[in-house]
Every structure is written in structure tokens, then in C-alpha cells.
Design a protein around this nucleic acid. Structure first.
Length: 376
DNA sequence: AATGAAACCAACCGCCTAGAG
DNA sequence: GCTCTAGGCGGTTGGTTTCAT
């Protein structure tokens, strides 16, 4: 009947690990691998429960962990992926449980798969201590990535249109999100299984491994192209004729050009003064979107179906980046001695791809399996 | 130099799912 | 099919460090 208990939790040490304990754990895993975490502590001569050992190993002792401050690019990736993967609140849980959780994925771990050598715990801490606060400070709901007080939105009508558009496309967004998450999870699991071999003999970050995450190409481009990261200027430059077009997306524009980037001040007051930009889709395009909501293939289309997601514009992430540590952009991905610059160059010619959700779409598209998303 | 506030981060806790029996 | 546990995850806590006054 079942397995025996993990640990009796009696006489087991808790709290900070000592260097002696670290050495014991490290030495044991290097020699034997972790195998069963439950059995490990006694074998390694540790007065800890297996769970504690596992955490210590995965979050601290693993030799392939990169420590230290997060680079600008890493932060940007976290923000974007957080927006993509969403928050795991109760509703999200209920929605995701049957599919996403079935696939064994969770948000931080999924994000961690795209931040080489960073642990989910570290990413989580970064989010909670830095990024979330910056969002909140700017009046952006860190859960939904939307403006919390409408300060960024021009008029009530616009807000209404936004809300309607948002709702009308939420379902397909959710589908695509699940797809992306599923892909991430598969990737994560593959890495996990592979890591049983590599964990004992970690290899330096392989540039090709970085390149093997095509979903980040857009992020790279966004980072590496002509955007001045010190100048959180909206990159959305869509200015089509309004004739016969329906506005369905609002993205924030800070209205700050690169030339006046030095004027950039990260305050909510400034944000309130910003205007919103609209994207316009033709009625035909909207009909296409509606069709997609009925389960038609939404992937592979060049239409920005995701534009129904509102409130998250190119400006948001840029705003977050706040001009701090802007010179550290090469720290993370740049560790791959090649590849990064190439990625940037490949996509930098496409201005549209530099928008926030274009980036995410790029991720989704590149991550999605060939199968259409399951209907919710 | 002392003190309080804020930031940081390692570790714990509780929950969930897969899988063994 | 059911029970029970191990492993894994996200949320949260609390100790430590850094910064501001």
C-alpha cells in the first residue's frame, strides 16, 4: 500500500544550511547522484529531510547555477513570460488544472526553462522583490499586466472597446497560452530527464542550447535592435488608416522619443499623461478572429489575433526596465559567445516584431506544437 | 556611530499530481 | 479503482544585509 513516508520529521534539522552540510550533500550527489531524495539524507549523513536536501541542491548547490544580479534582458524575459503564462490564482488554477497541470507545468519553472542557469526560486524572488513592485508603482496590475486605474487609457469609450475586445479574444488567448505552456513543460521535462545525466557533470552554457530556444528570438531582437533601453519608447508605430478599420487594441505609448530619452523619468505621474495608441484591424480580420474563437486554427496566421489582449503594450516592459543597469544586457545571453547578436540581427529589421505582444506571439508560435489547441 | 527601514534571498510550508501498491 | 506517499511547485516567511537618516 503506497510508499513509505518521506521522513518522520523528528530530529531533523531545519533552517540555514552549514558549509559542512553543503559539503556532505555535494560530495554525496557528485559521487552517487541524488537518486531517491528520501533515502539521500541518511546515506549522506545529513540530519535533513529529503525535501530540504532537494531544495538546497536545486536552488543553491547545483554547479550550473548562475548567481548574482539579473540582467536587463533576463528581467525583460521574466516580465514577458509572466505576462504570457499568467498568474496562478484560483481561477487560473481551475482553468489550467486539467491541461496545464496535467502537463506538469508551473509558471516559475516554465519561465526558468528560458533563463538558463537561473532557478525558479531565484526568478520568483526577482519577480516578487523587484519587478512586481515596479509594476505596482506604475499603476500596473502585476497579476494581469493591465493598468489598474485606467490612467493609461484615453477615454471611457476606449476602455469599453478595450474591455470588449479583451473579452472576445480571451478564450483563444487562453488556448494559445496553454499550448505554449504545454510546450514549455515538455521542454522542461526533457531537460529534467537529460539533467539526470548532466547534473553531475554540468557543462558550460552551450551557445547552441541558447539558440535552441527559438522563442526567444523575438526577445533578442527586441532587446538588440534599435530600441534604446534607456528610452522606454513605445515601439508600436502602427498608423494605418482608420477607414473601415476597427480598433481592437490599445497599447501604451510613452510618447518619448529616443532623442529625448534623457528626459525619461520613471514616475506614475508621467505615465498618466501618456496617450494610448490603437491598432486597427479590418472587419475581415476581426471576422477571422471570431472564426478562430470557434476553434479554427489560430496559429500560423500572420494576423495579430493576440491583439485582443489589452493593456499590455510595448511600453510596459520598457517602462519597467527603468533605465537601470541598462548596460548589462549582454550578461545573460551574451554568455553564449555567439548567437545572440545573430538573433538580434535576424529579426531587427521587422519593427512590428518589437512590440510586446508581437514578442509573445513569436514565442507562442515558435513553441506551439503542430496540433491545434484544445478547446476550453 | 546608532538606529530604523527597506531590500534581499534562502528556506519552509502547503498544495497538487503521478505513481506505487 | 482506491489509498497513500514522493516529488515538485508556488506562495510566503523570517533572518540577514544594505541603505538612509
Amino acid at each position: 500500500m503506497g510508499r513509505s513516508p518521506c521522513c518522520d520529521k523528528i530530529g531533523l534539522k531545519k533552517g540555514p544550511w552549514t558549509s559542512e552540510e553543503d559539503e556532505k550533500l555535494l560530495a554525496y550527489i557528485e559521487e552517487h547522484g541524488h537518486g531517491s531524495w528520501r533515502a539521500l539524507p541518511s546515506k549522506a549523513g545529513l540530519q535533513r529531510c529529503g525535501k530540504s536536501c532537494r531544495l538546497r541542491w536545486t536552488n543553491y548547490l547545483r554547479p550550473d547555477i548562475k548567481r548574482g544580479k539579473f540582467s536587463l534582458q533576463e528581467e525583460q524575459t521574466i516580465i514577458q513570460l509572466h505576462a504570457l503564462l499568467g498568474n496562478r490564482n484560483i481561477n487560473a488554477r481551475s482553468v489550467l488544472s486539467s491541461q496545464a497541470c496535467f502537463l506538469g507545468l508551473c509558471r516559475w519553472s516554465a519561465i526558468a526553462t528560458h533563463l538558463p542557469r537561473r532557478t525558479d526560486n531565484e526568478i520568483k524572488n526577482c519577480w516578487n522583490t523587484h519587478l512586481k513592485k515596479r509594476l505596482a508603482k506604475m499603476g500596473i496590475d502585476p497579476v494581469t499586466h493591465k493598468a489598474t486605474n485606467g490612467a493609461l487609457i484615453g477615454t471611457a469609450d476606449i476602455k469599453s472597446a478595450k474591455a470588449a475586445a479583451s473579452l472576445s479574444h480571451m478564450a483563444q488567448w487562453e488556448s494559445a497560452r496553454l499550448e505554449a505552456e504545454g510546450r514549455l513543460a515538455q521542454e522542461s521535462k526533457m531537460r529534467t530527464s537529460a539533467s539526470t545525466q548532466t547534473s553531475l557533470h554540468p557543462q558550460p552554457m552551450n551557445p547552441s542550447a541558447s539558440a535552441a530556444s527559438p522563442c526567444l528570438d523575438v526577445l533578442h531582437a527586441w532587446q538588440g535592435a534599435e530600441i534604446d533601453l534607456e528610452s522606454p519608447t513605445s515601439t508600436l508605430t502602427f498608423t494605418g488608416s482608420n477607414s473601415g478599420m476597427l480598433p481592437i487594441q490599445v497599447t501604451t505609448s510613452l510618447g518619448i522619443s529616443k532623442s529625448n530619452s534623457t528626459m525619461w523619468q520613471q514616475t506614475c505621474d508621467e505615465l498618466e499623461g501618456e496617450e494610448s495608441e490603437w491598432k486597427f484591424l479590418s472587419k475581415q480580420q476581426l471576422q477571422g478572429l471570431e472564426g478562430k474563437e470557434r476553434g479554427e486554427d489560430i496559429i500560423g496566421s500572420e494576423q495579430p489575433w493576440f491583439t485582443g489582449m489589452v493593456g499590455v503594450g510595448a511600453g510596459f516592459t520598457d517602462m519597467l526596465l527603468d533605465g537601470s543597469s541598462v548596460h548589462g544586457t549582454s550578461e545573460c545571453w551574451g554568455e553564449s559567445s555567439n548567437g545572440h547578436a545573430e538573433h538580434s540581427n535576424q529579426v531587427s529589421g521587422d519593427g512590428e516584431s518589437k512590440t510586446y505582444w508581437s514578442g509573445i506571439l513569436g514565442m507562442v508560435n515558435s513553441e506551439l506544437p503542430s496540433q491545434p489547441p484544445p478547446l476550453l
